[in-house]
Amino acid sequence: MLNYSIIGVVEYEVKRLKYKKSFYFMLAIALLPFVTVAIVKYFNLEARGIFPVEESTHLWLYLYGTPRNIGSGTMLSATGIAAYMWLFASLFGGDSIASDIEDNGIQLILAKPLTRIEYLAGKTLSLLGVFTTVYFLGALSSLISAYIMVGPQAYVYLVVILPLVTAVSSIPITLLSAWIGGYTRSSLTGLLSGIGLYFLSSTIAGLVGFTGGDRFFERIFDYSLLDPIRASTQISTATVMYLTGLHKIVFPRIGGVHPTYDVNKLFIGSWLNLVVSSVVILFLMVKWFSRKSF
């Protein structure tokens, strides 16, 4: 299955990414937790009570971008690399086929003895490989930074699992951006479409949530399970919650009831959505790509 031609495409793609500025931007975000450490130490934030967060032994998960609980350090987790999965998926996906069309590499590649499916497989594998590697660096830097700030951390084994989960969860957005970028023969259109879809689905999820009144968050989560973009952006968080034994999320309400949400439902639903949407998008993409003239 993994023949030399696919390996050739993977090598080609990895080499291409090495020359891209967005790759170094992603790398910088992965190493951002070290900047957080520097700021915390320089301004002595621990002594001023700003650090640690409530769950200090889980701090590294927040720094990585996967809040273990709602309302607890979620602002901090907004700076973590996993929170930007949709951006990197759009950036790299939108560019992957479009750039080959733009610089004519596609004519040279597809004239070689490989099928178009092998080309797409090579592209997907290389992006998954690069994503996993950089997310791993992000997880590692989060873990080290958290250790420096607040001491020993829990769930260290997730350093290996989480990057792979984050990378795999980016498949639907990556494929959609790649498809649109390839169809329009424009990397920029692919990138903007990926980002646009993310914000559009977030807005729709928010609007649906508002119709739920007190059940605002539950409505958002329930709706998200039907939406491939939203579902894929919360898989890492859902997986962290599930694997760390958090089966219920309690939504904090000021002066009211505190509704709870079933994490298992979120975990299973978002993974199911990922598999189904990835298969459907891939099927439609292959169908389009296999008949396209270059």
């Binding site: 030399y4 031609s5 390996i7 050739g8 090598e11 040279l108 590649i109 070689k112 003895p113 490989l114």
Partner: peptide
């Protein structure tokens, strides 16, 4: 890379 894509 062109040679690699040729399967070499």
């Amino acid at each position: 890379l062109m040679a690699r894509l040729d399967g070499l």
